[in-house]
């Protein structure tokens, strides 16, 4: 029982903390972010296992963690409201080539982040080639390119 409680406590704590930190915090995973994640894992390990280094304890902790995860995903499926609270909602940050700056500022996304994602995923060079950029639940930015050769001229008359 002890091991399950530990797993549940750590799961909830991490869920809360990463929700607070915001989805952009570790989304790009630079080298340093990666090291940070490793160190967080190291700090968590002791609390998860306690003094008990038996294989059984490790099994119980792992099963409990994955069980909680599955359980939560089932609950989220039934209650979209809870899903929103736990995962957040996607948000448009570039619309027809125009960055929505107030939104981007509050979400801690820079124009450079959007352009980087546009280059990496779509091979785009400029903001006006982007029809929509969406900040997704996981903190990644997905890019929908303009149709046709030069979008903005045709879109601005909308």
């Amino acid at each position: 029982m002890d091991a399950v409680l530990r797993a549940a406590a750590i799961y909830l704590f991490m869920l809360l903390l990463f929700r607070i930190a915001g989805r952009r915090t570790l989304s790009n995973l630079t080298n340093f972010d990666f090291v940070l994640l490793l160190v967080i894992g190291e700090a968590t390990q002791q609390a998860l296992l306690g003094d008990d280094f038996s294989v059984t304890n490790a099994f119980i902790v792992i099963v409990a963690l994955i069980g909680i995860d599955i359980g939560l995903s089932l609950v989220k499926e039934r209650s979209p409201r809870l899903g929103k609270v736990l995962d957040g909602v996607p948000m448009v940050i570039v619309e027809h080539g125009k960055p929505l700056h107030p939104r981007m500022e509050r979400a801690r996304v820079s124009e450079e982040d959007v352009l980087q994602s546009a280059r990496q995923t779509q091979g785009l060079e400029r903001m006006d080639q982007i029809k929509y950029a969406v900040l997704e639940l996981g903190g990644s930015i997905s890019i929908i390119p303009q149709d046709g050769p030069r979008g903005p001229a045709s879109e601005s008359g909308r």
Partner: peptide, 21 residues
């Protein structure tokens, strides 16, 4: 229109998003 919710290309909930922030 900055804080109104879009339904295309994704359905937003800006009220929730603002509360979240």
């Amino acid at each position: 229109g900055m804080w109104s919710s879009r339904s295309h290309p994704v359905s937003e909930d800006m009220g929730f998003q603002t509360a979240e922030w």
